[in-house]
Amino acid sequence: MSTTAAHTPVADPHEHTAGFATAFNSGDPDAVVATMAPEAVFVRAPGDPVTGADARQAVADFLALGLPMQIADRHVYVADDTALVIADWLVEGDGPDGTPLRLEGSSTDVLRRGADGLWRSIIDNPHGTTAA
């Protein structure tokens, strides 16, 4: 996995969302995966969590839309080495087939500070509390 400084985990959990947006908007699945812990869970649809290669593929599939993401924290709660981030996001534009597309939601993400002092997501749930 290759990363640049813009796509590495952050030292402050309040900066994670901005770093994630930079990674997402780069269009590089490895950049997004670099913001996640190796054992992270990505929820590709409500009730459908995936890990490992399946998580990377789910990220790649989302990025294949070719549209930028706007995202902003609503809340960041930190307790020791764990943080809960609630963020509102929007992906909007013309999809790969030219059809207008608008996806939005409020994500619920759990971050953990690693031994290196950097924060990575361990649960990335873009669907938040959306029912299954």
Rank of each mutant, 00 (worst) to 15 (best):
Y77D: 13
A23V: 02
V110T: 15
S26G: 15
F42N: 14
M36W: 14
T17Y: 01
V78M: 10
P68H: 07
A87Q: 11
G52F: 01
A11I: 04
H7C: 10
R102N: 03
G117W: 06
T17S: 08
T108C: 10
T3W: 00
G47M: 04
W119M: 09
T35F: 01
R113T: 11
A64L: 02
G105V: 07
S2C: 02
L63M: 03
R112I: 12
G95P: 02
D81Q: 13
A11T: 15
P13M: 09
A34R: 04
T3E: 11
R113F: 08
D88P: 00
S26W: 09
A132L: 08
G52A: 07
V59R: 08
P100A: 05
R112D: 03
N25M: 08
T108W: 04
V91R: 03
M1I: 05
A53R: 14
N125R: 12
R74N: 11
Q57M: 01
A83C: 05
A60S: 13
I123C: 09
T4D: 12
H14I: 03
E92T: 11
E15L: 15
P49K: 07
E39I: 02
V32A: 10
P9I: 06
F62C: 02
L101V: 14
A45Y: 05
P29Q: 03
L111I: 05
A40K: 01
V32Q: 11
Q70W: 09
E104N: 14
G105T: 12
R56K: 14
V33Q: 07
A45F: 04
S106A: 10
Q57H: 03
A58P: 04
D12F: 06
A40I: 06
D88F: 01
H127S: 07
R120F: 07
L90W: 04
G52W: 00
D80E: 15
A11N: 15
A55K: 02
I86H: 05
A34I: 08
L65C: 02
S107E: 14
T51W: 01
V50N: 04
V10E: 06
A132S: 13
P68G: 09
D124T: 13
A132V: 03
A45T: 00
R74M: 08
G93Y: 10
G117I: 10
E92P: 01
A131V: 12
A21N: 07
N25R: 06
R56S: 10
